[in-house]
Design a binder for these strands. Structure first.
Length: 435
DNA sequence: GCGATCAGTT
DNA sequence: CACAACTGATCGC
């Protein structure tokens, strides 16, 4: 359908260069072991983890970009055949291991694609990334920003990961005779687990594939696959449920800890003797605040066995705001648009961008069709999924029961428009290996 | 068997 | 109810 000179986190044929921000499944959809459409640029850590995730993948397609360096890509204009130069720099996104943002400079101007990212003011790594970004930009203005808007709503307020990690430690140490299970994905939250392991001087059990990942990432001693060595286990999030915890508790007293940026809790934890002691609130990036549902944005009891802790690898609203304020891009597009409560980032941040936009109308246009924005000779396509398709899809599914199949094509079509971007039509140039 | 997509889960 | 991220079933070839 569409094709472009470069693609970020999108994998259909037709681009001249492909960029992967990180290895989470929702960014690699379309990448298969047999994928072959061009050189794939990623960070060194992502490249290292790549074979684990895609065992059959042709590694000769990978190009490593080291952080903080400008790389030059010799590309060609699809229409004129003229050479086009695109510069790119990878910058630490402080999301999961290997996650980077990409800063592009070309005839289309200066563009930053954040991928998923966390922008903690208190974190040393985020400060380095910040300097890298500002040095790269110098006095140049950012023309467009593709933003991780996952929690782009003032409702989402949570503390730094450091603070949340301390909460996890407190929960564990206040249950000295319990087994502990922590729900994690296949990649991400390693720093949390490592911190818990260090502070409590205890190994953490992980499943075998996860141990491989840990070893590749350089965590050699803190993790094990032997259950007998520890009472703390990290388990896949999809197997973390109330039933799981109930089952475990028939064997041994066990509590579950779910680190998540979302207020998971249904039951309101009413103050008193917090099970994990005084909440350390120094150095928080975002203030704890009452949620509309009355729950606190701190570790809390979800049910008899389960605690939730606001440990997030996405930026909270205050951090997103700070980021946009720092960069003041001429235009912003959210890269996540699946939530029914999605709000176009310009609604909040329009005042930081040159133009005071009529955000709601722009927003309508943005997601009601694949809006194509022309910037000089280059077209940028925003590939966000509509809110409505999601809701309607669900409703219809319930009603449907047997009849009506015709809408399915439309819905699945909309589903395809998820994350990632492509820039402009093109042919296929010869490639100079960058590494 | 393989890739793409859908359904469903926390 | 929300999310991001994931698994497993099913479809088409």
């Amino acid at each position: 359908m569409e094709s472009g000179i470069i693609s970020v986190d999108r994998w259909s044929q037709g681009s001249q260069a492909y960029f992967l921000t990180h290895l989470h499944a929702d960014h690699t959809r379309g990448l298969t072991p047999t994928w072959k459409w061009g050189p794939l640029f990623c960070s060194r850590i992502t490249a290292k983890l790549f074979p684990l995730k895609f065992p059959q993948f042709k590694l000769s397609l990978l190009r490593v970009l080291d952080l903080g360096h400008w790389y030059t890509l010799p590309l060609f204009s699809p229409s004129s055949g003229q050479p086009i130069t695109v510069h790119v720099m990878a910058i630490d996104a402080h999301h999961c291991p290997g996650a980077v943002m990409y800063l592009f400079r070309g005839e289309f101007g200066c563009m930053l694609y954040t991928g998923d990212f966390r922008w903690e003011r208190t974190s040393r790594r985020a400060q380095i990334a910040r300097n890298m970004l500002l040095n790269a930009l110098k006095q140049e203005k950012l023309d467009s920003l593709y933003l991780d808007n996952t929690y782009c709503n003032p409702l989402y307020s949570f503390p730094s990961r450091e603070v949340a990690a301390r909460q996890v430690v407190n929960i564990i140490s206040s249950h000295p005779n319990h087994d502990i299970v922590i729900g994690v994905d296949s990649l991400g939250k390693e720093d949390l687990l490592h911190y818990v392991s260090q502070v409590l001087k205890i190994k953490i059990w992980v499943w075998p594939e996860r141990l491989q990942t840990m070893h590749l990432l350089g965590f050699q001693d803190n993790f094990t696959t032997k259950t007998s060595l520890t009472r703390v286990r990290a388990i896949p999030r999809y197997s973390f449920s109330i039933e799981t915890l109930e089952g475990l508790n028939m064997m041994r007293p066990t509590i579950g800890i779910m680190p998540s940026g979302l207020p998971w809790a249904k039951e309101i934890f009413k103050g008193k003797g917090s099970a994990f002691g005084p909440s350390p609130s120094h150095g928080v990036t975002c203030t704890n605040r009452k949620k509309p549902n009355g729950s606190l944005a701190g570790g809390q009891i979800y049910n008899q066995y389960i605690y939730t802790v606001p440990y997030s690898e996405h930026s909270c609203f205050a951090e997103i705001k700070e980021f946009v304020q720092l960069l003041q891009p001429a235009s912003i597009k959210g890269i996540v648009a699946s939530s029914p409560s999605y709000v176009e980032p310009l609604y909040y941040f329009g005042k930081f961008c040159g133009k005071k936009q009529e955000s709601s109308m722009l927003y309508q246009k943005l997601w009601s069709e694949e809006r194509v924005e022309r910037v000089e000779t280059i077209q940028i396509k925003s590939a966000t999924k509509t809110t409505n398709s999601n809701l309607q899809g669900k409703k219809r599914r319930k009603k449907q029961v047997g009849l009506l199949v015709s809408h399915v094509n439309r819905v699945s079509l909309l589903r395809r428009l998820r994350r990632g971007i492509k820039i402009t039509d093109t042919d296929f140039p010869a490639y100079e290996d960058n590494i």
